[in-house]
């Protein structure tokens, strides 16, 4: 009986067949080591820090939890008393809004250039990926300390001179942008790599077909390359936001670190602050996701277009 029912409706999700159980088992086996690591060092630690953020903890011979008058006290004081926090957060948001498109556009352009048929391609690829290798803690400290990370003085001053008329809150992030432009570009190594991987999967027949139909390079970029690259753009955007948000040179991370180990404020306070920050980053990621996600109808359109193009090419 059971097998008969199963046959009739093989995609019934609620039924637990033997095969399904076996498949699940393999899934669990493969995910288990990772799950253990993450549960102990991330999930458990995060739950703990959430608990800390709702109390006032003191470290001396173990931890003592002091209950707060109001469990939300730490969160309230982050907003009420910490003047630096909203300002730094706003600056971070603005900086991100400026940097993200630059990184994505830059890495897409570089990936397109690197994907074209030119000589010494591998040398260029190495140069653009090299920063990922080198841009580690001590090296970065050196670079920012020496001011090498900025655009050469002359061009920077001319550019900023033009922008001088703008209001402070626009001018400031832009000038920050210029003073760390190299660092921003240095952050694009992984993104370039991901885009390259995506570009190499675009079948060249598509471009040929488009060309026969009279599409210019510009048109085929917008109509072929960009739609196919959309999932990659989403992946890259998320990756970029995450690296920018959790990188060591981020001012908010620095602030949280300072606050956490300051004698007057303490770890609970820092924990509350990091949860607020995480929530903000999550919202930013959600916005990025909603803006860049692949709409299902658009995908259908693209897929029906493809055979169409191929057919015409054969006709020709």
């Amino acid at each position: 009986m059971a097998s008969k029912k199963n046959k009739r409706n093989p995609h019934d999700k609620r039924r637990l067949t033997k095969r399904k159980l076996r498949e699940w088992m393999y899934g669990y086996i493969f995910i288990l080591p990772w799950l253990i690591g993450v549960s102990i060092f991330f999930v458990y630690a995060m739950v703990q820090s959430l608990r800390f953020s709702f109390s006032n903890i003191i470290f001396s011979n173990g931890i003592t939890f002091n209950a707060l008058a109001n469990p939300w006290d730490n969160y309230a004081s982050v907003f009420m008393k910490e003047i630096n926090f909203p300002i730094t957060l706003a600056n971070f948001g603005l900086g991100l809004a400026l940097q993200l498109p630059i990184i994505i556009a830059f890495s897409l352009i570089i990936a397109l250039l690197l994907n074209s048929k030119i000589r010494a391609r591998s040398v260029f690829r190495m140069i653009f990926f090299l920063p990922v290798i080198i841009a580690t803690g001590p090296v970065m400290q050196q670079l920012t300390a020496q001011g090498v990370s900025s655009v050469p003085m002359v061009s920077q001053n001319t550019l900023l001179g033009i922008l001088q008329g703008l209001p402070e809150f626009i001018y400031q992030p832009i000038s920050d942008l210029f003073s760390s432009l190299i660092l921003i570009l240095w952050n694009s190594g992984i993104q370039i790599l991901i885009f390259l991987a995506g570009l190499q999967k675009v079948p060249s027949t598509l471009y040929e077909a488009a060309k026969i139909d009279g599409a210019s390079g510009w048109e085929s970029f917008w109509k072929i390359t960009l739609p196919i690259m959309k999932p990659m753009i989403l992946l890259n955007s998320i990756y970029t936001v995450v690296t920018l948000a959790t990188g060591g040179d981020n001012e908010i991370i620095q602030l949280i670190y300072d606050v956490s180990y300051a004698p007057t404020k303490g770890y609970s306070y820092g924990a509350a602050m990091s949860w607020i920050y995480t929530a903000v980053v999550a919202v930013i990621l959600l916005i990025v996701f909603l803006l860049l996600r692949e709409k299902s109808d658009r995908r259908v359109k693209y897929e029906t277009k493809r055979p169409d193009l191929k057919e015409r090419r054969q006709d020709a």
Partner: peptide
């Protein structure tokens, strides 16, 4: 979620 979380906040736990 773990991807986004601030590492400083989990050091003591």
């Amino acid at each position: 979620l773990a991807l986004m979380f601030v590492a400083t906040a989990v050091t003591i736990p």
